[in-house]
Amino acid sequence: MNNKEFITKLAKRCKLSPAEAASNVEGLVAAITEGLKENDQFNISGFGVIEVKMRKERLSVNPKTGQRFLVPPKVVPAFRPSNKLKDKFNG
């Protein structure tokens, strides 16, 4: 299901026009992004946790050339599904 299909289905379900649904989705994504930038954690029951994680710096080797790189630390967004959701897919 790509973005377009997702928005049309969402519009139908919420009885909104596709344009409205699209702007609403945009707003929701913006809200989540703002929250993640603030190191916030979204705990949505029945779905899971959207959060950010720290990755430490590490040494990596290019297997082709053998070059070694020091990869800097970074922050990445992550999703952790709830147990309920996991159970749903694993019957």
Binding site: S23, N24, G27, L28, A30, A31, I32, E34, G35, E38, N39, D40, Q41, F42, N43, I44, S45
Partner: peptide, 18 residues
């Protein structure tokens, strides 16, 4: 900052935004 936000918190944020 470092807050744990649940479903209703997120919808409140969205309501403010839209």
């Amino acid at each position: 900052m470092d807050a744990k936000l649940n479903h209703s918190d997120l919808s409140a944020l969205l309501a403010k935004e839209l």
